[in-house]
Design a protein around this nucleic acid. Structure first.
Lengths: 131, 131
DNA sequence: AGCGCCGATACCGTTGAAGTAACCGGGCAT
DNA sequence: ATGCCCGGTTACTTCAACGGTATCGGCGCT
């Protein structure tokens, strides 16, 4: 939530935005692959570079991130723009179609804030019962 | 919940409710396991029996359905009630927590109705480009 | 010459979800 | 007594996702 869309460069992504305490990995929802939802969150504020995306995504390996981005590009969720510069620069940006997923991510997050503790409590209770 | 344990049954589930033409399997969303969302849809109208659930779920194998139901029970999304009758009868019903997921499924379906053709078109266009 | 940066790709191993096939126990109809 | 039905379970296999490590190519820097 640190983004302010000023004219210059975007604020850097918070490397802890998917910190282990963030329950996003426990949510019973998935959008596409494991990382797709988090990539959308990272690109919500504007275009980002490959290496910029790696930091907050809990050190996702380049291979998996590359696969995820390619799948999303194939499905029209984001665009990939390579600038012929040095050092090389590649920017990923959400398409309008990709942005239509944001409300769903919001809904999933809202559900989790309200109900995920309930679900996890039920799970723990069940485990205690089994033992 | 107008359930009578011996009286009029609910209308049977449409065996084609997850027909191959139903794009639910193409949706880029998942709730829990592969089948969790469909189970919720099947139980939306009231409790159902094991064999009743098998029909519309495109012949999911008993093993996978059993695993799915057990995981959902563990997470407090549904209850399992076994009646000591003959023939044996087991009913699965959504809990209030399970019902909280229905609006999310609705949102996912609404997204798919609006945008999924767009996504699939982008995918096909990309494949044509690759070829 | 050697090193590092960026954006990957190749190769390989692990994991876990999902599917297949066979079977079970009790009751009941044939 | 045989087989069927219900609601599963068990054992085995398959498959895609995910992850780890290593490496590449072009360029600039020292």
């Amino acid at each position: 939530m640190t983004d302010s869309t000023d004219g210059a460069r975007l604020a850097p992504l918070d490397p802890d935005m998917f910190h282990p305490f963030c329950p996003s990995s426990e949510m019973p929802f998935r959008v596409g692959d494991k990382w797709t939802g988090m990539v959308i969150r990272c690109l919500e504020g504007g275009p980002r570079r490959f290496t910029e995306l790696r930091a907050p995504l809990r050190s996702v390996t380049p291979k998996v991130l590359s696969e995820t981005l390619r799948a999303m590009e194939r499905d029209g969720l984001l665009t990939r723009t390579a600038y012929d510069e040095n050092p090389p620069r590649v920017e990923y940006a959400l398409t309008p179609l990709g942005r239509t997923l944001i409300p769903l991510l919001d809904a999933a997050r809202a559900w989790s804030e309200t109900h995920l503790p309930h679900l996890l409590a039920a799970r723990r209770a069940h485990e205690r019962n089994a033992a």
